[in-house]
Amino acid sequence: MILDDNLGPEGDCVYAALMAAHEGLSEAESHSLNARLVLMLANEVGDPARLEALFKAARSLA
């Protein structure tokens, strides 16, 4: 799991692209998009141990 910066100079760019992906969607549509993204990113990572660590790290802030 990488929690230090991994996006480098592209961080602002990636964030803006994520916001753009949501633009014009209702809140419900955005929640659906987020759910699809989580599933697609999980497949992209592909490593159950890393994913489990990420789920725990995200949950710890809830």
Partner: peptide, 9 residues
């Protein structure tokens, strides 16, 4: 929501 999005994907 997740279940429905799995089906959509």
């Amino acid at each position: 929501l997740f279940r429905d999005q799995v089906l959509t994907l």
